[in-house]
Amino acid sequence: MTDWFEDTFARAPLMAILRGMGVERSAELSTLAWDLGIDAVEVPLQTAEDDAALREVVRLGEERGKIVGAGTIITVEQLDAAVAAGARYVVSPGLDPAMVRAAQERGIPILPGVATPTEVQAAVGLGLTWLKAFPATWLGTGWFAHIRGPFPQVRFVATGGLSAANVGDYLAAGVRVAAVGSALEDPVQLERLSDVLAARS
């Protein structure tokens, strides 16, 4: 699974998270993200409408050769729903070894959330080297510099409170992928995100 995330996130350092936006808006913003150069799109799966939105974004992604993930996966039932909807990877807000094993049994890559060295070490013990750092703005950019010392092999996707104003700081701190959500609905931020992508292309 390590190589899978390496390949999936290799082309762009940004991820789009489309939380609770409904089918139509999720379709619009996923297309906008792909046009901007953001390859990774995640649709959090918490309601029936989210399931419909995920299925539509997956359909659009397949037309463009893009991979779509499902987020906020905290139960096996959600995991199975994500797989059924066509998600190619799943993201959890925290680290639950049972969820990690369930995803591994189903052959679907998982990004569990971590916020402490203990959680990072536990994730590494489960065979993971790609992790979600959440909530990123609460952790701060300095956290990543400290955590790289004992865990140089771990790659982080930073989520939670990021925008065009601070994604560059997190990427400079060593984050491999920075996730944004509402920034996609702000024309000013879109221009700045485009500049970030251009600088790292």
Rank of each mutant, 00 (worst) to 15 (best):
E24Y: 10
R88F: 08
F156G: 01
P150V: 01
Y170P: 00
I73F: 07
R19P: 11
A85L: 05
G86E: 07
A27D: 00
R176V: 07
M15G: 10
A158K: 14
A84M: 01
E28R: 13
G113D: 06
A165I: 08
V175G: 09
Q46D: 13
A122W: 06
A81I: 09
D50S: 01
F151E: 08
G113I: 07
G113E: 07
T137Y: 04
L162E: 10
L197S: 05
Y89A: 02
L126P: 03
M99W: 06
A48V: 07
A158P: 15
L36G: 06
L29K: 08
L36M: 12
S182I: 12
A122V: 12
G65R: 06
V100Q: 00
T141A: 15
G140V: 03
A133Y: 05
L131G: 06
T129H: 08
G69Q: 07
P44S: 12
T129W: 05
W138R: 12
G20V: 03
Y170S: 00
V188Q: 14
P109T: 09
D39Q: 05
D3C: 03
I74L: 14
F134Q: 01
A122M: 14
A82G: 14
P112Y: 02
S182E: 14
E6C: 10
M15S: 13
L111K: 09
D51H: 11
S201W: 11
E28Y: 04
A122N: 12
D7K: 12
T31C: 13
I108K: 04
G142H: 08
D35N: 15
S201N: 14
V114E: 03
E24M: 12
M15I: 12
E191V: 15
S30H: 04
G94P: 01
G37S: 02
V68K: 07
R192E: 09
W34A: 05
G69K: 06
V91L: 07
